[in-house]
Design a protein around this nucleic acid. Structure first.
Lengths: 170, 170
DNA sequence: GTCCATGCAAAGCTTTTGCATGTCT
DNA sequence: AGACATGCAAAAGCTTTGCATGGAC
């Protein structure tokens, strides 16, 4: 895949990221059986809520989502299940600056980074091979072997910039 | 300043970053008076500990450092003072993945990013204009106006890579 | 003397954990 | 039946805050 042009708007707010097919939930099932773990209504509920969420969801948001289907889902279970999803490679945890862990789908997806709107909180993903290459060369120059990295750009998205411009000229 | 070659090893573990002169502490003094705040032994102590620290210190580490000079320094005061230093632009807060806020000196320093060793925790700074330029162009392509960004590369530093290689071949 | 800073302890937040109970196989 | 998952509430880790006291101006 060539991401050098960047711009895969993979999972911004409001769009579904679950369209990968029914696969991820099945993959969780496989992982569960493989390890002698057990299926449960909650796990399916949480996995479904997560994969339908479009990514970058907080645990709080997941809890809320799940409770619409079953009000008795506990926070602890959501934490535990998300950890499970992360372990089997279906989710990955991200820390943006706000003190809450966010999860995004990770099933076979290439590495990508984030643009985050400081006004509306919208999160857009992008990937750029040239940046990745530069990172590698910088690391090498310092004797580091890169295992992972993260890049976040914070700023105002198009919509919020427009909004602000209009409000300035009323 | 041309940082395109990157590699300013500004404040790695153990090295002092306070050699900027006696200026930063004075700058804090100015800010304090300007705002009708008050000088105190603790504030000087904390500022000194911070500027001598080489950067990327946690609050916990600062408390420890300060208590060597005066065991009665409270955690709350360190938090409050670091917030003050951040407000007046002398310190900036960073969140790496470990749940603790770290502070680094920020007095008139250009933007830079971090290489973090996942084995020994060493943190090395670098700056690279080409990456910054690419970030700008990506943001523009998405209609974003960048306010700030952060880039962190996680991996094993030269020392830890060597150590591991030796242990494999005994 | 007035206001600000400090210390302490309590409280806030997010996340984790212990334990009795419920559920899957 | 046996092993694992769940819910609840308590606890843990970092940070903030309320309040009485102490210190700066």
């Amino acid at each position: 895949m060539n991401a050098d042009q960047d711009g895969m708007r993979i999972g911004s707010k409001g769009r579904g990221g679950a369209a990968v097919g029914a696969t991820p939930v099945a993959a969780l099932g496989a992982y569960i059986e493989e390890r002698g773990l057990k299926h449960s209504r909650q796990r399916e509920l949480i996995a479904q809520a997560f994969f339908e969420s479009g990514g970058h969801v907080t645990v709080e948001q997941l809890v809320e989502r799940c409770r619409r289907a079953d009000p008795r889902v506990s926070v602890a279970t959501v934490y535990r299940t998300m950890k499970l999803l992360a372990e089997c490679g279906l989710a990955s945890a991200r820390q943006f600056g706000d003190g809450q862990t966010r999860y995004e789908p990770a099933a076979g997806r290439a590495h990508h980074d984030h643009l985050i709107c400081t006004v509306c909180g919208d999160i857009v993903e992008f990937a750029n091979d040239r940046i990745e290459a530069l990172q590698e060369s910088i690391a090498r120059r310092h004797g580091f072997e890169v295992e992972s990295h993260r890049l976040e750009l914070y700023g105002r998205c198009a919509r919020c910039r427009t909004a602000r411009a209009e409000e300035a000229r009323p």
